[in-house]
Amino acid sequence: MNAAPVLVGYTAAIGFAAPYLLLRSRWPHRAPALAAAVWHALAVSFAIGAALAAYNLAMPTEHLHAGLVGLLHSCGLHVDTGRPDPDTAHQLAVALPVAIGAALLASFAFHVVRARRARGRHRQAVDLVGRRSARLRATVLPYDTPAAYCLPGRRPRIVVSDAAVRQLTREQLGAVLEHERAHIAGRHHLALAAAEAFHSVFPRLPLARHAREQTALLLEMIADDRALRSHSHDALATAMYEMVASRAPKGAFAAGGHGALIRVQRILGPRRAPHPALWGSVAAAAVVVPLLPLLVACPPGLG
């Protein structure tokens, strides 16, 4: 039996319905690392599902019109002759999933390399222009508004403006720096590159769009949580406010979203870790979800 209809249904559900389900849940902001893992698991599951669905659709079946070749045929796209050659169909059946996998890998590599190159150029300039502070373990740039960012990767840099060093309290600055260190230590740029790569391959897919956005926000929350281990909630929240408020809004960038607002509300709100049972079942789901399409396509016991 051809598993194509089930696979197509499953893949569509993951790609279109699952993101909205996840966006509506409340637990992701309480367990950001788990939520980021779930978004990535959904992306992997979608990719495997799509690859297997493509394989099953292109695979010649006894029922010609069930296959992709038959579908193309009925849509008026004649593949050579009226009767598709089983060999061609078979090659297509293998080529499609391989192409999906290769596109994802190539896209990931592209994003990683491009980002690394951009960081390398930026780091060289930062090293020339800025002053390294051994005390802060950061590079200080002369700039008149408080700001901070990090260059993750192999030779990481944390960059802060001298205004941030002057205007923030010691505790606030410490919280900001710890937040940036968490990004670097957690290699968050790779998770971002993966989400970015998935989005480049499936640009219109709701799952890809939301996974990219949510991954960025969840990584900020993970870094916030890390900073809160050694710094007060007040320090981190007020530091965020200082940085946001002192920056002149620029029309083009103002559409940046309300990530900072969500984060501040989260930092100041009651801290509740999700129930262990919920945590456990979500974690289990994150592990199983990528394997589901395989179970559908080749049910154990049927070979």
Binding site: T238, M240, L261
Partner: peptide, 23 residues
């Protein structure tokens, strides 16, 4: 976004006001 990760993004005036209110 993978090249540089910054602490907070740019916000509109309304968002800054909402942030102040939250604090």
């Amino acid at each position: 976004p993978a090249a540089l990760i910054h602490f907070v993004e740019n916000m509109s005036d309304e968002e800054v006001a909402a942030l102040r209110k939250a604090l």
